[in-house]
């Protein structure tokens, strides 16, 4: 009876809502995994574009997808050697 009453007033969280919430969060992270092939292709294209404007240290280039609770960010660390004066 008590359980029924507390359900009626929404006091207890239904376990399926918990399941759905946890799934949502874990899938944000799962879906943010780039395959190694794609990541390499991305790096290469970034180097090509950036090289038009600056000299970059290709060996020190780091590109990763960072996921925190419910968002994903592309984080790139690109050491610059020299900036070009003109195109």
């Amino acid at each position: 009876m008590l359980e029924w009453l507390s359900r009626l007033f929404g006091a207890t969280e239904q376990s399926k809502d918990k399941a759905k919430e946890r799934l949502r969060l874990v899938l944000v992270q799962d879906r943010a995994i780039l395959s190694p092939g794609l990541l390499d292709a991305l790096k290469e294209e970034m180097i090509n574009v950036l090289s038009k404007y600056m000299e970059i240290d290709e060996q020190g280039l780091e590109v990763n997808l960072d996921s925190s609770d419910d968002s994903v960010a592309l984080v790139a660390n690109i050491p610059v050697r020299k900036v070009k004066r003109k195109l």
Binding site: R7, Q14, S15, K16, D17, A19, K20, R24, L27
Partner: peptide, 16 residues
């Protein structure tokens, strides 16, 4: 279990 709210429904799963 769905009636008690202890199992994800079809809509929940499709939504995800």
């Amino acid at each position: 279990m769905i009636r008690k709210g202890d199992m994800m429904t079809t809509d929940d799963i499709i939504d995800i």
